[in-house]
């Protein structure tokens, strides 16, 4: 009996010592997931995801409590980057991210030149001056909708990007089940 107790005791002590040493010397640093994700998000704090800012959204994404397609201005490439970083698979076929990105557009007939929109725009995509016509620069607009919220005459709208010869793409071929049978 005494051999049994002492053997188990020595075993337990030795293994516990190994564990303690491993915890000390082989420790894995916590990876800065949240920081990486924050860097990937646009950073315009538009609020379309439901969180106050991109920082909070990054934490939620890192936790896994929200799905990856939560940020509309990020588009498809953001989802791909997030999926790659978090090591998860994302199935594009059934999510709503296949809708085209939206851009802000000023209806010039109803613009009063109040300057509220370009003060709100986080990317300086709206040009204008007090009492002058405002206009949106498409290449700088990422669809955060902050300008639409503050416009007093509601002349700002979100419109879909027009398909031109330069941004037309081939569609994905339909799966067999959705194809009509040849005659």
């Amino acid at each position: 009996m005494i051999e049994g107790i002492s053997t188990m005791a020595i075993l337990g002590f030795t293994l516990g010592l190994f564990l303690a040493l491993a915890a000390r010397f082989l420790k894995v640093e916590a990876d800065p997931v949240v920081d990486d994700i924050t860097a990937m998000l646009p950073g315009s704090n538009c609020g379309q995801c439901g969180f106050a800012g991109c920082g909070q959204a990054a934490e939620a994404v890192a936790e896994g409590s929200v799905s990856l397609d939560i940020c509309p201005p990020g588009g498809k490439s953001l989802i791909e980057n997030l999926a790659a970083r978090l090591g998860v698979d994302w199935d594009f076929s059934n999510s709503a991210t296949n809708t085209a990105p939206m851009l802000a557009y000023v209806q010039e007939a109803t613009c009063i030149g109040c300057t509220r929109c370009f003060k709100a725009c986080p990317t300086d995509a709206i040009i204008g001056a007090p009492k002058q016509m405002h206009s949106v620069i498409d290449s700088a607009c990422n669809g955060c909708t902050l300008c639409v919220d503050v416009c007093p005459t509601e002349c700002l709208q979100m419109v879909e990007v027009q398909t031109t010869l330069t941004n037309w793409r081939w569609n994905k071929p339909l799966p067999i089940s959705q194809l009509p049978l040849a005659a």
Partner: peptide
């Protein structure tokens, strides 16, 4: 995205 980020940070 890179351009937007640059604009946001610049602003």
């Amino acid at each position: 995205d890179d351009e937007i980020k640059r604009l946001i940070q610049g602003r």
